[in-house]
Design a protein around this nucleic acid. Sequence first.
DNA 1: CTGTTAGCGCATTCAC
DNA 2: GTGAATGCGCTAACAG
Lengths: 333, 333
Amino acid sequence: MVTIKDIAEMAKVSRTTVSRVLNSSGYVSEDARKRVEKAIEETGYIPSQHAKSLRTKKTKIVGVILPTIQTETSSRIVTGIGEELSKHGYEIILANTNLKKEKEIEFLELLKVRRVDGIILIATNTEPDLVEKIKDINIPLVMIGQAVDGVMSITYDDYNAARELTHTFITKGYREIAFIGVDETDRAVGYLRKKGFLDEMEAHGLKVNEGWVQEAIFDIDSGHDAMERILSSPSVSDQKSVPKAVIAVTDRLAIGAMSYLKKEGIRVPEDMGIAGFGASEIAQYLDPPLTTVDNQNEKAGEKAARQLINRITGREYSEKIVLNYRLIWRKSL
Amino acid sequence: MVTIKDIAEMAKVSRTTVSRVLNSSGYVSEDARKRVEKAIEETGYIPSQHAKSLRTKKTKIVGVILPTIQTETSSRIVTGIGEELSKHGYEIILANTNLKKEKEIEFLELLKVRRVDGIILIATNTEPDLVEKIKDINIPLVMIGQAVDGVMSITYDDYNAARELTHTFITKGYREIAFIGVDETDRAVGYLRKKGFLDEMEAHGLKVNEGWVQEAIFDIDSGHDAMERILSSPSVSDQKSVPKAVIAVTDRLAIGAMSYLKKEGIRVPEDMGIAGFGASEIAQYLDPPLTTVDNQNEKAGEKAARQLINRITGREYSEKIVLNYRLIWRKSL
DNA sequence: CTGTTAGCGCATTCAC
DNA sequence: GTGAATGCGCTAACAG
């Protein structure tokens, strides 16, 4: 492998001079520059980022820890992050936990070994050991999706989105509304979206029957099963109170729910209104097209990257950003 | 930042000894080891991978270049790659071209700067400048999805999958079959799948009308439009020959086509059979569920990673691997 | 404008 | 069993 030393010798200058033309820093005579460039050209020399990093203490790498890349949410966020980072000459090291929580902490360690300049964590929980680890990692870090005191974050306005969505269901005349949520250790998706729903229902004096609120995991089948549980809960079986609508906290859960409804011959939206969250691409092609909440994931990724870079480079940055959302009304209710 | 030198001083040994316990190489007395470990524990010392890389010439990083991460195909491949690499202590640097071809070459450069140990390229084309660049990059590289002479690759059996799919359409009684493809510079998806289709049709003496073969780009809307073009092509408009089935080269294109059919009141599969490629998760939840070809993307990723590591570490590896596929029959035909 | 000197943090001889 | 010496490839004072 050809090194800076070889170039220096070929161009009959010192390594310093080569370094100068490489980084276009300091003065270098036209003549010397030419010779250096020629040598680089001839040899195909490419400077080693490692040696450079060792010296400068900057790696120009950002670690991205995520729970899975196989959801539109994640992949969009990553696209946004990548887009923004590459503008500034940073690369991404991808750390995919595949939904194994313990790996989050492992990866934090690992990224530290790699001396990344910053970390972006697409978070699924805010558990104490994770937060503790984050706080003593001593590398600029921003979380996406969850907010924690003392940690930079980009979050969605989950609570208000859920309220507004619920509100609109109500103003459209729905009064019996069911809910498919997820585990509340996911504070944003599990807790806040559910709370928004419940608070809005309560504000309107509407009752949410036991059995109407079901918990699922993040996949389509789970939405299917949750819908089934809702429709076979005691008060429903007695025909005393059948929900007329259902809100699912992700589009995938909504798709699963729809598939159950279709199987049972329950028409959407005539017999049951439905909405999801996430604005997945497929939502608009469903039959009927699914009402959903667009959280602007790419933008979340971009903002996270931008704020992180600001922080890394000592510029001003926002500690917390809450993105606004957009309700997309379609025919499913 | 605490370094190996600090640990050495604290433990009253030389840096060499610290290095030894770090890498569990060579002899080190129980006593010395204890002291070193204690010092590491107390300081939270983490060795710098950069310094190590500079010394050992190994980064334990693999670069992954991909056209987009927002398709199931890509994200699954990446999951497979990540899964396998992490078993061996490698990390991924993600290079997302966002469908900009020129960036592929740019990223190759960049990964060279980073001195990655290997590169995995999820390829969309096999154009000469790309191939040339690959060949003189001098870093072990494996392509996924496209085959090129002299380059390691993992590919799908696109040609035969297309033939077999077509064959089954035919044995089910379909004789008028249309086709939605993509640009043939994508040799695997664009050229081979189309050729498989055409060859099989020809082998059965079936005619493929002009206008029945349309070219789309990789998104849902494009599938919709292609379907529209097929059904409004001259021979179809004359009612002389309306296709009774359509094969799309990706599930997304098939979904787009289905949405057009639904809009036009054309029933699937009664009026028109349809199939896609890719075994996307959503395919089974469509109405009707979509027949598709599973080409095991995670496995492709895993194999690519494994072969690459074999190559990097000087073990035996396969230059070319062609994965088998699996037809998934559902109600859409 | 340019070169000399001095490390960055680590692994690897080679002695002891 | 252990340590001193050396250098990986690069940048950053500091002199000239």
